[in-house]
Deep mutational scan, measured.
Amino acid sequence: MGFKLLSKLLVYLTASIMAIASPLAFSVDSSGEYPTVSEIPVGEVRLYQIADGVWSHIATQSFDGAVYPSNGLIVRDGDELLLIDTAWGAKNTAALLAEIEKQIGLPVTRAVSTHFHDDRVGGVDVLRAAGVATYASPSTRRLAEVEGNEIPTHSLEGLSSSGDAVRFGPVELFYPGAAHSTDNLIVYVPSASVLYGGCAIYELSRTSAGNVADADLAEWPTSIERIQQHYPEAQFVIPGHGLPGGLDLLKHTTNVVKAHTNRSVVE
């Protein structure tokens, strides 16, 4: 069995187990497998329904001669939608809004960016022009300005110390501490036991640490421990890039980060 097929099978099995364990909360999309990078042309966006009122959005972007996937989250909030992270750029984010209108038909009224990198804030200006209120932590807003990236308009308070959590509509926002970046936030959907790890969490097929220019490698494993301790009931975990899975993604990420750190020390 090929690795790609095995990865998709694991996603399907995880979703099936969740649907059985929580039949009222989960209505997993039966329309197909989780979209992969090879299936999404740059400039297009796919939506994948995880649970009743919960979707991931998947886009792709060219970077350094390669094409990478990027995940975000959409959560229903009454007759409105909360968006977590842009679709990595203005063109993708405009396509995301169009796809949401086509498939869901509810307005996106608020959006949260989970850290300051372009795959999370690139497209904020498109959201703002569409009347979406954009939010991020003060740290993310400051770092985005320093980096020359787009800056969300509103500040999220109460997320300055490791372990801080605040309720934001249908989700809980959690600051686990520094990891992929010093400002990275985690998003949890309690009604569906869905954990969105953003770039602080890796997919299972990833074996290298990737972009760690703004990471705190020493603190990252401790931050992941905080996530595990705060959300032990999480059933569906979405990484910032690639295929979702279960809580095993947290341990896998820790292993990859520690291996990278150990290699760096040896070198």
Score class of each variant (00 low, 15 high):
1 M>E: 07
2 G>K: 09
2 G>Q: 09
3 F>V: 11
4 K>I: 15
4 K>N: 09
5 L>V: 11
5 L>W: 06
6 L>C: 07
6 L>D: 07
7 S>C: 09
8 K>A: 04
8 K>W: 12
8 K>S: 13
9 L>N: 02
9 L>A: 07
10 L>A: 08
10 L>T: 08
10 L>Y: 09
11 V>Q: 04
12 Y>E: 06
12 Y>P: 09
13 L>I: 15
13 L>P: 07
13 L>K: 07
14 T>P: 06
14 T>N: 12
15 A>C: 10
15 A>P: 01
15 A>D: 11
15 A>L: 07
15 A>V: 04
16 S>A: 07
16 S>C: 05
17 I>D: 02
17 I>Q: 10
19 A>C: 08
19 A>Y: 03
19 A>E: 05
20 I>F: 06
20 I>S: 11
21 A>F: 10
23 P>K: 14
23 P>W: 02
23 P>A: 08
24 L>K: 06
25 A>Y: 03
26 F>M: 05
26 F>N: 04
28 V>T: 03
30 S>N: 08
30 S>F: 02
30 S>P: 10
31 S>Y: 15
31 S>K: 10
31 S>G: 06
33 E>S: 07
33 E>A: 09
34 Y>G: 08
35 P>Y: 08
35 P>R: 05
35 P>C: 12
36 T>S: 08
37 V>L: 06
37 V>I: 06
38 S>N: 12
38 S>Q: 11
39 E>K: 08
40 I>G: 08
41 P>H: 06
42 V>Q: 14
43 G>Y: 04
43 G>S: 11
43 G>E: 04
45 V>Y: 03
46 R>H: 01
47 L>N: 13
48 Y>R: 03
49 Q>D: 07
50 I>K: 09
50 I>Y: 10
51 A>I: 10
52 D>A: 06
53 G>H: 06
54 V>A: 06
54 V>T: 06
56 S>C: 08
57 H>T: 06
60 T>N: 03
60 T>H: 04
60 T>E: 09
61 Q>C: 06
62 S>W: 05
63 F>P: 01
63 F>C: 10
64 D>P: 15
65 G>S: 08
65 G>Q: 05
66 A>V: 05
66 A>E: 08
67 V>K: 10
67 V>F: 13
69 P>M: 12
69 P>S: 02
69 P>W: 03
70 S>E: 09
71 N>A: 06
72 G>V: 04
72 G>E: 02
72 G>D: 07
73 L>K: 01
74 I>P: 03
75 V>P: 01
75 V>C: 09
75 V>F: 04
76 R>A: 04
76 R>G: 07
76 R>E: 05
77 D>Q: 07
78 G>I: 13
79 D>P: 04
80 E>A: 13
80 E>P: 01
83 L>K: 00
83 L>E: 13
84 I>N: 01
86 T>N: 00
86 T>F: 02
86 T>D: 00
86 T>S: 14
87 A>I: 00
87 A>N: 00
87 A>E: 00
88 W>D: 01
89 G>Y: 06
89 G>C: 08
90 A>V: 12
91 K>S: 11
92 N>Q: 14
92 N>E: 13
93 T>P: 00
93 T>K: 00
95 A>H: 14
96 L>Y: 00
98 A>L: 11
98 A>H: 15
98 A>P: 10
99 E>I: 12
101 E>L: 10
101 E>T: 03
102 K>V: 12
103 Q>V: 07
104 I>W: 09
104 I>E: 01
104 I>P: 02
105 G>P: 03
106 L>G: 10
106 L>K: 15
107 P>D: 14
107 P>Q: 11
107 P>M: 04
107 P>N: 10
110 R>V: 12
110 R>T: 12
111 A>Q: 14
113 S>A: 12
113 S>G: 09
114 T>Y: 00
114 T>G: 06
116 F>E: 02
116 F>G: 07
117 H>G: 00
118 D>E: 05
118 D>L: 14
118 D>I: 15
118 D>P: 12
118 D>S: 14
119 D>Y: 02
120 R>H: 13
121 V>E: 01
122 G>L: 15
123 G>S: 15
123 G>P: 01
124 V>D: 15
125 D>C: 01
125 D>A: 04
126 V>E: 15
126 V>C: 05
127 L>E: 14
127 L>F: 01
128 R>Y: 15
128 R>M: 05
128 R>E: 02
129 A>T: 04
130 A>T: 04
131 G>A: 09
131 G>R: 05
132 V>E: 02
132 V>I: 01
133 A>G: 12
135 Y>T: 02
137 S>P: 08
137 S>D: 03
138 P>K: 03
139 S>D: 15
141 R>A: 12
142 R>W: 05
142 R>V: 05
144 A>H: 02
144 A>Q: 10
145 E>P: 00
145 E>T: 10
146 V>M: 13
146 V>R: 07
147 E>M: 10
147 E>G: 05
147 E>S: 02
148 G>A: 14
149 N>W: 07
149 N>K: 00
150 E>Y: 00
152 P>V: 04
153 T>V: 04
154 H>V: 09
155 S>H: 00
156 L>A: 03
158 G>W: 10
158 G>H: 11
159 L>C: 15
160 S>T: 08
160 S>D: 04
161 S>F: 08
162 S>K: 05
162 S>G: 10
163 G>E: 08
163 G>P: 08
163 G>D: 09
163 G>W: 10
164 D>S: 10
165 A>W: 14
166 V>C: 13
166 V>A: 04
166 V>P: 06
167 R>E: 08
167 R>N: 08
168 F>Q: 12
168 F>G: 02
168 F>E: 07
170 P>R: 11
171 V>A: 04
171 V>N: 00
172 E>Q: 08
172 E>Y: 10
173 L>Q: 01
174 F>P: 00
174 F>I: 05
177 G>D: 01
178 A>E: 08
178 A>I: 10
179 A>C: 15
181 S>C: 13
182 T>D: 12
183 D>A: 08
183 D>P: 03
184 N>C: 12
184 N>E: 02
184 N>T: 13
186 I>F: 02
187 V>T: 12
187 V>Q: 01
188 Y>F: 12
188 Y>A: 09
188 Y>M: 06
188 Y>Q: 11
188 Y>L: 11
189 V>D: 12
191 S>Q: 05
192 A>K: 13
192 A>V: 07
194 V>I: 02
194 V>R: 01
194 V>N: 00
195 L>M: 15
195 L>S: 06
196 Y>C: 05
196 Y>T: 13
198 G>V: 12
200 A>Y: 14
201 I>W: 01
202 Y>C: 08
202 Y>I: 09
202 Y>A: 13
202 Y>R: 11
203 E>Q: 04
203 E>A: 12
203 E>T: 15
204 L>C: 15
205 S>M: 13
206 R>G: 11
206 R>F: 07
207 T>A: 07
209 A>N: 09
210 G>N: 11
210 G>V: 05
211 N>A: 08
211 N>M: 15
211 N>F: 14
211 N>Q: 07
212 V>D: 09
214 D>T: 07
214 D>A: 10
214 D>F: 03
215 A>W: 11
215 A>V: 10
216 D>E: 11
216 D>S: 08
216 D>R: 08
217 L>V: 14
218 A>W: 05
219 E>L: 08
220 W>K: 08
221 P>E: 13
222 T>M: 12
224 I>V: 04
225 E>A: 05
225 E>D: 08
226 R>L: 02
226 R>H: 10
227 I>R: 03
229 Q>L: 14
229 Q>E: 06
230 H>R: 07
232 P>S: 07
232 P>M: 10
232 P>G: 09
232 P>T: 14
233 E>F: 10
233 E>L: 09
234 A>P: 01
236 F>P: 11
238 I>T: 11
238 I>R: 04
239 P>Y: 02
239 P>K: 04
240 G>Q: 03
241 H>Y: 02
241 H>E: 01
241 H>D: 03
242 G>T: 13
243 L>C: 14
243 L>I: 14
243 L>N: 15
244 P>G: 14
246 G>D: 13
246 G>I: 07
246 G>V: 07
246 G>Y: 06
248 D>K: 03
248 D>F: 00
248 D>I: 05
248 D>L: 09
248 D>M: 02
249 L>E: 14
249 L>I: 01
250 L>D: 01
250 L>W: 12
251 K>T: 08
252 H>A: 05
253 T>E: 02
253 T>P: 01
256 V>P: 11
257 V>R: 12
257 V>P: 14
258 K>E: 04
258 K>Q: 05
258 K>T: 08
259 A>L: 03
262 N>F: 09
263 R>N: 15
264 S>Y: 15
265 V>E: 10
266 V>M: 06
266 V>H: 08
266 V>L: 07
266 V>C: 15
266 V>G: 10
267 E>W: 07
